[in-house]
């Protein structure tokens, strides 16, 4: 069994809402680990992610810090560098589709607005992370990766980004203030404009193969 910390606490990128991301690596099922506290992976699955060059493998390889090892070895360090990330186009399309579906759901009167806003945040952050890793070999795994792309950064206000981020925290951790109607309405035009940002970057990804 191995336990690692990763995410904001390892980057020093913390604020009052930061949680501590913990990874446990186990053989088979281990009921000591609660999946709402730990990301639980098997050794085999992690090795697969390394072979795929999956962004999560790059995330862990870049940031993870060992907390406990049952055999005295650092499993992640010993895996070395993950394979090159080659599924950028596929993943960017996947997160673009997620964004479109969430916007469609809200536009057609869906009743789970915070869940949809959370999905939009997930789509935006993961799209940015995959684009940076696939197109520029930059590993940026921050929740604010879409705002840290220099000239290619997403063009929405901090307030709107924050509302999306709060929705994600409500959806996953169940904490924070509920998004009210005014906040939602004030951010909606900018949320719709995200489509152009994604389409432009997607064109670039498709052009580069």
């Amino acid at each position: 069994m191995h336990i690692y910390a990763f995410g904001s606490v390892c980057r020093g990128d913390i604020d009052t809402e930061s949680d501590i991301d913990l990874l446990s690596i186990v053989d088979g099922y281990d009921d000591r680990f609660d999946s709402s506290t730990y990301s639980i992976y098997s050794y085999n699955r992690l090795m697969e992610l390394w072979k795929e060059g999956n962004p999560f493998a790059w995330h862990l390889a870049t940031e993870a810090k060992i907390i406990y090892s049952s055999n005295g070895k650092d499993f992640i360090k010993d895996l070395g560098e993950p394979k090159e990330y080659i599924k950028c186009k596929q993943d960017c399309i996947k997160f673009f589709n997620l964004y479109c579906k969430a916007v469609d759901s809200i536009s057609s009167g869906g009743n789970s607005v915070i869940f949809e806003m959370s999905s939009i945040f997930l789509a935006v952050r993961n799209f940015a992370t995959c684009y940076l890793l696939g197109q520029h070999k930059i590993g940026n795994f921050s929740r604010r990766s879409a705002l840290q792309m220099n000239k290619k950064s997403i063009q929405i206000s901090n307030d709107t980004y924050r509302i999306l981020e709060r929705s994600r925290v409500l959806c996953i951790r169940g904490t924070g203030k509920i998004i009210n109607r005014n906040e939602f309405e004030n951010s909606w035009d900018e949320i719709i404009s995200i489509k152009n940002w994604m389409e432009n970057l997607l064109d670039e990804v498709i052009e580069n193969g």
Binding site: S36, I114, F115, R173
Partner: peptide
């Protein structure tokens, strides 16, 4: 989305269900 739609169509609730994580359900 489909499961949340069933829960959140109930209009008598103070807060909507924001997600299907254990912690969101607890809230």
């Amino acid at each position: 989305r489909n499961v949340l739609e069933v829960i959140n169509r109930q209009l008598d609730k103070k807060e909507e269900l924001c997600g299907l994580s254990k912690k969101a359900i607890e809230r």
